[in-house]
Amino acid sequence: MKILVCINNVPDTTTKIKFVDNKAFDSAGVQWIINPWDELTLTRAIEMKETQPADIESVTVINVGRADAEASIRKALAIGADNGIRINSDTSDSYSVAFQLSEYIAKEKYDIIFCGIESSDYNGGSVGGMLAEFLAIPSVSSVSMFEIKDGKVVVKREIDGGNETLSVQTPFVLIGQKGIAIEPKIPSMRGIMTARTKQLTVVEGVACNQLIEFVDFDLPKAKAACRKIDAENVKELIDLLHNEAKVI
């Protein structure tokens, strides 16, 4: 099977968020990383290829973005992906990202397409489902386990209050979350060396209608200082929660 892992390039999660005139994210001095969920799906795809090489023919990573996203693609190659693709385009919203991915995938044929549950920047949580609908193939979301048994794909998905185990026919889009892997795989020295020789193909993006636009951004108001309650008088907390916050 051929696996394609969609990876987004996002600001490091400890980044202090700032905007230029409240209109656009201020990327000055920002450290970029592979979106944490994509790191987990990628980790699982590579684990599978290493442990079940007969089942997995290749793992390709793909990103829709500008050249500055290539460091993240190279990192994915260093972790163990076989090759990388960058669709050269701006990434304003999930719909156009999904459309661009679908246009490329329609020509290339992958058996399983991995997406993360959401990007940690704009928190859309939409590309995976949109991509599946553009391609008219099944999607399974909130996936916390992925296996191939006797050539059959078995996944576990989280439902509100439990989980379900499914078998799924390929091709399909797998939308992964925590559990599919626990810790992201770290590139080895050798991985970093070989990544340099792996192929990174750049293809031009295609135009897409925009259904939504970001009007502006703002930061949360500074929170009122925490009200401290004496540890010897926890009753006061109950009192405040009942009479002031009205939550109990």
């Binding site: 939504i212 970001f214 951004f217 949360p220």
Partner: peptide, 15 residues
């Protein structure tokens, strides 16, 4: 909320 609750966005839907 965006950036994992570190900011807010106002989004216009045009469709």
């Amino acid at each position: 909320k965006v950036f994992t609750s570190k900011a807010f966005a106002n989004i216009k839907i045009n469709s």
